[in-house]
Amino acid sequence: MATDERQLVRRAKRGDEKAFRTLMERYRRKVYSIAYGMVHNPEAAYDICQEVFIKVYRYLGSFQGSSSFYTWLYRISVNLSIDWLRKQGRVDLVDFDDSLARREPDGAEAMVVPKVQDSDPLKALGRKELREQIARAFESLSEKHRAVLLLREVEGLSYDEIARALKIHKGTVMSRLHHARRNLQRSLRTYVQSGGKEKRMAEK
């Protein structure tokens, strides 16, 4: 944790509202991104984002300075998002993703995507479509998989940091990331393949 951030956290712990305001300005967007990624609802994500900082303010005294402030902050963000999903009855009881992933034989399922990207005239459109498809596929992942992917791909945390943020083992982080990525890839591949078929039919 950067020295300046340590100082901000220490000051906020002592009740310095200005320091806490600076921390909020620094992290509100990141917290929002996690909340949005988890719940896919802008209003709920904004509300969760506020709740996260209220909780942080109230419980700052329990924060252990030995860890990064942001791993603690992100944990609260993920947990409050899961609480919200639970209230909506939208938390997966069984992790279907892992069981599905195991059925697939290991192999070259990743190869389709770059070839689509290379089809130059449609590059911009292709990317936008792929992005929409990624968003849909991401939404269908379990909340555990969404959490690791968000912390890795969007927030850029290391495996160790993700492990600390989610209070899971590093091996679990790696395995969840692997399955989450594989599920996204499978979904994209299906989309690309069906897209190809549609295009051929349109040409006839």
């Binding site: 792929l130 992005r131 990624i134 968003a135 990525r181 996204l184 890839q185």
Partner: peptide, 8 residues
């Protein structure tokens, strides 16, 4: 796919 997710 990581990049697309981040962009989104």
């Amino acid at each position: 796919q990581g990049g697309l997710l981040r962009e989104e």
